[in-house]
Design a protein around this nucleic acid. Structure first.
Length: 234
DNA sequence: AATTGAGACAACCGCCTACTT
DNA sequence: GAAGTAGGCGGTTGTCTCAAT
C-alpha cells in the first residue's frame, strides 16, 4: 500500500525532547481515566503539547504499569539472542515473548551489547552447528498470543494548571532513574528511584495524602515496582 | 581537574499495514 | 476499489553518563 504520507501533527505546535514529570503524570492520569482509543486525539484531550505518536511511545516504552525496568536477566538475554537468530529484527515479536519488556528496550539492548556477544558466539561456534538449528521451533501463531495485556490504569483527578507548570519546571534528568549504573541490584535501585520520583510528584501535587487511592488507580505503585517506598525521605 | 571517547538509552523519523470512509 | 487516516514497527539520532587518559 503506502499512501502519501500525511504529517502526524503540526511540528511547530508540539513539544519534543525529554518528557517532564508533569507530562508523564498528565498522560498517566488521562489514560487511566479514558484509555487510549485514539492516540492522535489524546494529546489535545489530555492537554499535552505532544504528538500522538510521542504519547504512544512514551506510554508503551516507559509509563505503562507493566513495563519492567532494570537490567535484563541472563535468561532474557538468551531469549533475545535465540529469537533474533530465528526471526531477525522483529523487535515487537521478540518483545511479545518477554513480558514487561518493550521492543525499543530490546532493540537498544541488542544494538548495544547483545549483538557483539552474539557475533562473538557465532565466531566461536563450530561451523557444523548453526544457531537456528539449536533453537526450539517457533510456533506459527503470533507470539503475542502468549502475552498478557495489562489492564488499563485508572483514576486520578484533574490538577491545577499552575501545578503542572511548576512540575514542568522540574528537571527530568534529576528525577529519572539512574542509567545503567552497574552492580547486581540495579533493578532494585531503579525501582527505588522511580518510587522517589513518584513521591516528588505526589508531594508537588498534594496527592500524598490520597496515595492509597491514586496508587491503586494508577497501578504504578504495585509493590513489585516500588518496594519500601515509605523508607525514603525527600 | 579537565578532556575525550564509548556506551547506553530515550525519543524521533519515516515507512508500512490495517482499517475506515 | 480507491483514497484517507491512524497505529505500529524498525532504523536512526541526539544527548547524557561514566570510565579512561
Amino acid at each position: 500500500m503506502g499512501r502519501g504520507r500525511a504529517p502526524c501533527c503540526d511540528k511547530t505546535k508540539v513539544r519534543t525532547g525529554p518528557w517532564s514529570p508533569a507530562e508523564d503524570l498528565r498522560l498517566m492520569n488521562f489514560i487511566g481515566k479514558h484509555g487510549h482509543s485514539n492516540w492522535r486525539a489524546l494529546p489535545k484531550q489530555a492537554g499535552l503539547l505532544r504528538c500522538g505518536k510521542s504519547c504512544r511511545l512514551r506510554w508503551i516504552n516507559y509509563l505503562r504499569p507493566d513495563v519492567k525496568r532494570g537490567n535484563f536477566t541472563p535468561d532474557e538475554e538468551n531469549t533475545i539472542i535465540q529469537l533474533h537468530n530465528s526471526i531477525g529484527n522483529k523487535w515487537s515479536k521478540i518483545a511479545s515473548c518477554l513480558p514487561g519488556r518493550t521492543d525499543n528496550e530490546i532493540k537498544n539492548v541488542w544494538n548495544t551489547h547483545l549483538k557483539k556477544r552474539a557475533n562473538k558466539k557465532t565466531d566461536d561456534r563450530d561451523d557444523s552447528i548453526t544457531a537456528a538449528a539449536k533453537l526450539p521451533p517457533l510456533s506459527k501463531g503470533s507470539p503475542s498470543s502468549s502475552c498478557t495485556k495489562q489492564p488499563e490504569a485508572a483514576g486520578g483527578d484533574d490538577e491545577d494548571d499552575d501545578l503542572w507548570h511548576m512540575l514542568d519546571s522540574l528537571d527530568p534528568l534529576q528525577l529519572q532513574p539512574t542509567k545503567d549504573g552497574g552492580g547486581g541490584s540495579d533493578q532494585l535501585v531503579q525501582e527505588v528511584e522511580i518510587g522517589k520520583w513518584l513521591r516528588i510528584l505526589e508531594n508537588e501535587l498534594g496527592l500524598a495524602a490520597h496515595q492509597p487511592e491514586s496508587a491503586t488507580d494508577l497501578g504504578i505503585y504495585n509493590s513489585t515496582y516500588l518496594p519500601n517506598l515509605d523508607s525514603f525521605t525527600l
